[in-house]
Amino acid sequence: MDAIILQILNGLDKGSAYALIALGLTLIFGTLGVVNFAHGALFMIGAFVAVTLQRIFGLSYEEVDPDKTDFLGNPLVVDKPYVEKWFGADFGAWLIDWSVPLAIIAAIPVMLIVGFVMERGLIKHFYKRPHADQILVTFGLAIVLQELIKYFFGANPIQTGAPDAFAGSMDFGVLLGFDPNVIIYPYWRLVYFLFAALVIGGVFAFLQFTTFGMVVRAGMADRETVGLLGINIDKRFTLMFGLAAAVAGVAGVMYTPILAPNYHMGMDFLVLSFVVVVVGGMGSLPGAVAAGFLLGILQSFASMNEIKSLIPGIDQVIIYLVAILILLTRPRGLLGRAGVMED
């Protein structure tokens, strides 16, 4: 039982990331009709916003420590962060420690701009082109973006830790009546799940309870009619692209303490996220979220030793097997609606 609860918990944080990326993908597909293969790169750029902020806070001046030597035997040059000099040792250290949560504040405008530039500069030219063209151009863009990140940040994963306040793990099992140390769950993964729930809830509320959201939903259902009513739907859809980019970006920021960012992390998530969108139903926002969590949890279960010993390698293929099964029984996905990608 404890193993099952553990794998559900593991699946929740993985599923949170899938759901957040798939949500953005679905928003873009539902509004603009574009299959955006660069969406994983937006998740990766968000993660590197956190890395960048950590590096900005870590900008240092050099001080020579006469008591120590470097690898060539010269006096050791020690880096001292400017923030500790400018704002005092305590506040400076706090800024560095909290760089990941603080990066959300930086990531939202950065990702909105990245999304806007991407949509206006490239993707809008492909609205009327076949999906194959869209996939090719956005996939190419993803490769360009990841190579740019590699050029500036290198190929190795970069540790970007959570604040000390969230280091360590909680004994989840004790809350459920198990013995101590049976079900351990890191605090930051719990934070990530709650954060994902908040963002998903926020996006749904925005679409459901604001006039802007109502127009967007109407545009998703019937773009032409909304246009005939004199509403500039294109402008709103561009903003939705920016919003989708921001969702992917903040998802990337918060994921950095779970997975040390590297330049190809977006590509690792992209394929799975597309499967999530297809399983959830193209164009369905609730479907994307539900499928994200469902596939995340199933993937965790498939990694259990008991399951792997029965079917070796199942952890590698479970998501695709489930996708095949669902598409065979429900060709439009779990919550897909008629008419999407069927013309």
Partner: peptide
């Protein structure tokens, strides 16, 4: 006790690590 093979580049190893605890 056990030897579990993990895919190269798995990224998130949490589902392989949690069974270790018990």
């Amino acid at each position: 006790v056990n030897n579990v093979l993990t895919p190269v580049g798995a990224g998130d190893f949490s589902s392989y690590i949690t069974p270790v605890l018990n």
